[in-house]
Design a protein around this nucleic acid. Structure first.
Length: 1053
RNA sequence: GCCCAUGUGGCGGAAUUGGUAGACGCAGCAGACUCAAAAUCUGCCGUUCGCAAGGGCGUGAAGGUUCGAUUCCUUUCGUGGGCACCA
């Protein structure tokens, strides 16, 4: 009887499906109270390229583990689904016009059929897809929970926003009283609440490509231009949704203590969160007419005292009854859209001004038609003149101008703001201070210059007239650079002096202020104090621009490089002199706080998570914009379904494709959609209760299945997906929606399977291809060739000509009659022609072989190149196993004879090894152990059922089909999937003697067999009697004999 | 640049965590069976010196700790992943 894997595998897959052996029940229908176990894979994005051999690596590992746990008596949840929203489908739609829903559906069908051929134990009745309305209804619902919650700093947890509103109504807040809160307009209240919501809207910078009319990802921007088409890309401010993940920074850090992630994974998350402690402090500009701490801020109370009570109410009324023009302008000025803070209907002296930028002393009036009156014109002019006297600049726009040409109006205002009150050092305004964040306040006396991010709001205003031109040139350069480039290219030092100086508050030293691309606006305050003797980047910068360096660390600084030590004793450091730097940090912060120029501060590198995508194929936001206020949709109106679109191009002004739909715009729906990680942040819960129409997941189900016990996926998700889902889980926990605040108890990282690319070498300008070994003699182009037409490194020349029509007339220069290809390891990707379809392999060798071979390649956690060649060895092993049961000619071999001790020893050695390897996810060594076991049983000519059936159970997780078949051949009726896992009996493994390795001076020279119970004195005697040892001793006595019982011997001469 | 991982035969990898480096498999070589091929089986297989016995070298590189280092420490080089709109 032969091993007919095709028949066997198909038969059992059918049978298993019919019997629903993989169906998993939730309590209470679960009668026997088995312990639960939840094994989850990071779910795949169903790409059009289908599954390649890299994908199943983690799935096979989790499948093995799930089946193992099942054999061990657990109720195992091991689901699969699809992260089916995403950019590639949309990109494909743009190119081909096919709707993403259609292509996604097709891709999923392909994935599922591919997955099924590998024999996974998924309960497909629990499948979820993020792009299903039934699913994203709850993604939207959860978004609304985030929107309707805020982070209470006292309780350190999420609470309903209604509680905050109540607090504002009854006791107000730091910035306003309860009476003021009640007097605010609806919009003003909404703006204030938005600053606390966990899902909030604000203005943020994106990579904007005008030519493509779209927002680009960082890696789509290369050298300041778009990867596709090479069009210029600039930073643009747009309204975006964010998740306030920063509020959870500390809890995300603490949570790492109670999960089993690898240390490196935890380290990556910690670094991403980037918590640092230090101080935020201010440097005043020169000259500074006012003493520190006083009069630096423009007062907000600008009203003439006597008329204030009257005007106050009037201004409130005006705000509520704004003209259309005022309203349009307000929507474009408010919040964080501009760098500058604007106030509406603000009272200055005894006038009410429509819009006031107090810091910039710029006032804006929006006038109705009656202002064209001669009399009114005169009145307006005198009013402007009066305000000019007070130091304000007034600009006026007509109502119609605002209504019809809002963009022009905005750009005029921006220009005025930039030019307003330039604070060059000569002018003596001195009302500004530069805020820096530093973790090393102890080095304050070593500050030789300040560096601002080029985007810093003060840059335009502090630049001196002489430097203006240079700064502008530099700013243009920086605009063309991506953040990535700015951080990466450190060898190339760039920067520009602003012409302005700041004052070191401790010694009064004047410090030049520079801008440089290595300081990023998004980190800290966007400004740093540079200490060249202690920071290498600052040092390189100072050297490059010839800035004098102050040494505050004595001998620790050698003049050729910076020394970031914290152990030096400070010198030239005023009140810090003589202190060790470590100790000086606290002292410096105390002083800074005492002087009122700054404060102790904890800073996080992590930023709030951008949650808007200007795209189509994602979850719509359940939000309506009414007069600039975000109004959540009613729960009963969910899901807000993604509408059908004709075209997938961007909408107006950088909006997503939804912006093109008239009906959508008319209903004032948000036009951006949610990002990929929205659906994947909570999917692990939906698997527990996938069909629920009442809730995202029944509480009983989420309590029963609880956390994911083992989560398997790649390290590429280390900081994105994992942090987001951890945050969502914490929010859900805070809101009492679930009972635990970490989603994944244990994380196993799977390495990537890399492609092993093959190359052919074409002689330039010809159709001649030269074999790899001979290519050095020619000038050649290196071309990728499909790995599927190469056997090892030998090219199948016939298939090559057929592969691409270009190669039909190819000629070859061979070596030893073969064409040998070049080899390189690269990412597995269609464009490198190095992908291998698992179905090809399951068809040729069977699923069991394929599963075991994927595992045999190497440790799951490690990346390794794929090479199909070795699969034969594993296939041979399965056939060898089969031949322990059946002979091709003689038929049945297995017997019911009693097993010998030697056979039992092999079995129990295997049980021990397989069990511990499986438990530790060391599947490659487990496969080896199976091979060794079968080899040994072969040698012992063991065909005994007693041994073999136990071995089969061990094999189930790895090769379920063949195990089930042989199980039935041995005469069992039930499925082997629920058999009892073999129990290890140590008594069969006891050894009586040990072959000790004997080293002389650490070098192995011989071995001696001794009883395992031999102790040192007796062992020494035996060792010294040994011929080889005597030869090396040359009659001398050894200096020392090291004897480690059960391990080894070392003789030191 | 920063963070994380990783580097062992021709190739994938193993080594009970400081104790016999190269298990297991692929490829290769030699042989058995066969008319032949496939399949199967047996042997060899890091490198170097040697007829052999046996010896030298060897885990990216250079140092160090130790009776003993692939394993621990320092420095350094290469490769892979991540760096916030790929998923």
């Amino acid at each position: 009887m032969e091993y007919k894997f095709r028949e066997i595998e198909e038969k059992w897959r059918e049978k298993w499906k019919m019997d629903k052996v993989y169906k998993v029940d939730n309590p209470p229908s679960l009668i026997a109270a088995k312990p639960k176990f939840y094994v989850l894979d990071m779910f795949p994005y169903p790409s059009g390229a289908g599954l390649h051999v890299g994908h199943p690596l983690g799935y096979i590992a989790s499948d093995i583990y799930s089946r193992y746990k099942r054999l061990k008596g657990f109720n195992v949840l091991h689901p699969m689904g699809f992260d089916s929203f995403g950019l590639p489908a949309e990109q494909y739609a743009i190119e081909t016009g096919q709707h993403p829903a259609t292509t996604t559906e097709k891709n999923i069908a392909t994935f599922k059929s591919q997955l099924d051929k590998i024999g996974f134990c998924y309960d497909w009745e629990r499948e979820v897809r993020t792009s299903d309305g039934d699913y994203y209804k709850w993604t939207q619902w959860l978004f609304l929970q985030l929107f309707n919650s805020y982070f209470c700093n006292t309780l350190q947890k999420a609470r309903p926003i209604a509680e905050l509103i109540k607090k504002y109504e009854t006791s107000g807040a730091a910035d306003f009283s309860s009476a003021e809160w009640l007097a605010f307009t609806k919009e003003e209240q909404a703006d204030i609440l938005m600053k606390r919501r966990l899902a909030f809207s604000a203005f943020g910078e994106v990579n904007w490509c005008e030519a493509l009319g779209t927002v680009l990802a960082n890696d789509e921007v290369v050298n300041g231009v778009s990867e596709r088409g090479g069009h210029p890309v600039i930073k643009k401010k747009m309204r975006q949704w964010y998740l306030r993940i920063t509020a959870y920074a500390d809890r995300l850090l603490e949570g790492l203590e109670k999960v089993e992630f690898s240390d490196s994974m935890k380290e990556m998350q910690r670094n991403w969160i980037g918590k640092s402690e230090g101080a935020e402090m201010e440097f005043c500009l020169t000259p500074d007419p006012s003493p520190a701490g006083e009069g630096r801020k423009t007062p907000i109370q600008t009203a003439f005292k006597k008329v204030w009570p009257i005007l106050k109410d009037l201004s409130r009324e005006n705000r509520k009854e704004a003209t259309r023009g005022e309203d349009i302008l307000w929507q474009r000025l408010r919040g964080t859209q501009l760098e500058s803070k604007v106030r509406r209907q603000h009272v200055i002296d005894n006038f009410i001004i429509d819009f006031a930028f107090l810091n910039e002393k710029l006032l804006i009036e929006v006038d109705g038609d009656y202002h064209n009156d001669e009399e009114q014109k005169n009145y307006d002019a005198s009013r402007s003149a009066y305000l000019n006297e007070l130091g304000y600049k007034v600009i006026r726009f007509g109502n119609r101008e605002v209504e019809n040409q809002i963009d022009a109006v905005i750009s005029r205002i921006k220009k005025e703001l930039t030019e307003a009150a330039p604070l060059s050092h000569g002018r003596g305004v001195g009302g500004e201070a530069i805020k820096v964040y530093t973790t090393r306040p102890d080095t304050i006396f070593g500050v030789d210059f300040l560096v601002l991010a080029p985007e810093h709001e003060l840059v335009s205003r502090i630049t001196s007239a002489e430097q203006k031109e240079k700064i502008e040139v530099y700013l243009t350069y920086v605009k063309s650079r991506s953040d990535r480039e700015r951080m990466a290219e450190v060898k190339q030092i760039t920067g520009c002096f602003t012409g302005a100086y700041a004052i070191n508050p401790f010694d009064g030293k004047q410090i030049p202020i520079w801008i440089a691309e290595y300081v990023l606006a998004g980190y800290g305050t966007g400004a740093i104090m540079a200490v060249p003797c202690g920071d290498q980047r600052d040092f390189a910068f100072a050297k490059h621009f010839d800035i004098a360096i102050t040494n505050i660390i004595g001998d620790h600084y050698n003049g050729t490089e910076a020394n970031p030590t914290k152990d030096a004793i400070l010198q030239h450091s005023g009140f810090l002199n003589g202190l060790r730097m470590k100790d000086a940090i606290g002292v410096a912060i105390n002083k800074i706080e005492e002087l009122g120029i700054g404060k102790r501060k904890v800073n996080y590198r992590m930023r709030d998570a951008g949650f808007s995508r200007q795209r189509y194929w994602g979850e719509p936001f359940p939000i309506i914009w009414e007069d600039g206020v975000a109004v959540p949709l009613n729960e009963n109106d969910l899901p807000l379904e993604l509408p059908f679109v004709e075209k997938y191009g961007p909408g107006p002004e950088g909006e997503g494709p939804l912006g093109n739909i008239e009906d959508w715009k008319k209903r004032k729906y948000e036009t951006s959609t949610m990002p990929g990680y929205a659906g994947s942040s909570w999917y692990f819960l939906r698997y527990m209760d996938p069909k629920n129409t009442e809730r995202f997941c029944d509480r009983n189900a989420s309590d029963y299945w609880n956390q994911v016990d083992v989560y398997i996926g790649g390290t590429e998700h280390a900081v994105g997906h994992l942090l987001y889902s951890r945050m969502w889980t914490k929010v859900m926990y805070d809101l009492n929606l679930i009972g635990y605040d970490e989603p994944f108890k244990r994380l196993v990282n799977q390495g990537m399977i890399q492609g092993s690319s093959r190359f052919v070498y074409r002689i330039k300008g010809t159709d001649k291809f030269v074999s790899a070994g001979l290519k050095d003699g020619y000038e050649v182009d290196q071309l990728h060739v499909d790995v599927n037409i190469v056997d090892g490194t030998e090219l199948d020349i016939k298939s090559f000509a057929k592969w691409k029509s270009d190669f039909i007339n190819s000629e070859f220069i061979l070596e030893d009659g073969k064409y040998i290809c070049g080899v390189e390891t690269e990412k597995m990707s269609k464009r490198y022609f190095n992908t291998v379809d698992p179905v090809l392999l399951t068809d040729k060798y069977g699923a069991d072989t394929f599963r075991m071979y994927e595992m045999f390649l190497g440790p799951v956690e490690q990346s390794k190149p794929w090479d199909t060649k070795g699969i034969e060895g594993v296939h041979r092993f399965l056939r060898k196993l089969w031949r322990l049961f059946f002979d091709e000619v003689k038929g049945k071999l297995w017997t019911t004879e009693k097993a010998t001790d030697a056979e039992l020893k092999v079995l129990h050695k295997t049980i021990k090894k397989i069990e511990s390897d499986t438990e530790q996810f060391s599947f490659n060594t487990a496969v080896s152990a199976f091979m060794i076991s079968v080899n040994e049983l072969n040698e012992l000519k063991c065909n005994k059922k007693e041994i073999l059936e136990q071995l089969l159970i061990l094999l189930v997780p790895y090769a379920p089909h063949i195990a089930e078949e042989l199980w039935h051949q041995l005469g069992h009726d039930g499925t082997i999937l629920d058999a009892a896992y073999p129990t290890l009996q140590e008594k069969y493994l006891v050894e009586t003697s040990k072959e000790y390795p004997v080293s002389i001076n650490g070098k192995l020279r011989t071995t001696i067999s001794m009883d395992v119970n031999t102790l040192q004195p007796e062992a020494e005697k035996l060792i010294l009697e040994n011929e080889v040892v005597q030869k090396w001793l040359e009659g001398k006595a050894p200096k020392k004999i090291i004897f480690v019982k059960g391990k080894m011997v070392n003789v030191v001469i």
